[in-house]
């Protein structure tokens, strides 16, 4: 079933938001956290750490739900998550096939 409208109780729903902390110097670039993050929050950064690896960074900040899996899986104890301030439900969290309006479509197509 697909839905098009934001649920009416969306504002009442507190969404758990995790804050990702990365201890960059410990990272050895194994990419486990990036691969296994269920919400694909993490990505490889361009910067180097002292060891010469690319540590991850939270590319989609705010999407982390504090599941702590990166913490569990990291062999170097280089990443951990703390619970942040609860956020609100965003359209992209619930609506998977929202079609943009006509004007927006045109804008995207012709790049006004």
């Amino acid at each position: 079933m697909s839905f098009w409208r934001m649920p009416l109780d969306a504002e009442e729903q507190g969404v758990t938001v995790g804050e990702v902390h990365i201890i960059a110097y410990r990272c050895k670039g194994c990419r486990y956290c990036i691969e296994f993050c269920p919400n694909n929050v993490l990505a490889e950064s361009e910067e180097f750490n002292e060891k010469g690896y690319h540590p991850p960074y939270a590319a989609k900040d705010g999407k982390c739900v504090n599941c702590n899996f990166c913490e569990t899986i990291c062999p170097e104890f280089a990443i951990f998550v703390t619970e942040g301030k609860p956020g609100n439900l965003q359209p992209a969290d619930v609506l998977h096939d929202v079609k943009p309006g006509r004007r927006l479509q045109r804008k995207r197509r012709y790049g006004e």
């Binding site: 109780d9 758990t16 504090n66």
Partner: peptide, 15 residues
């Protein structure tokens, strides 16, 4: 549970 979706029973009006 941290994951939300529209509730089918409420025809998408609730999560």
């Amino acid at each position: 549970c941290p994951q939300h979706a529209p509730n089918e029973f409420d025809v998408g009006l609730a999560t």
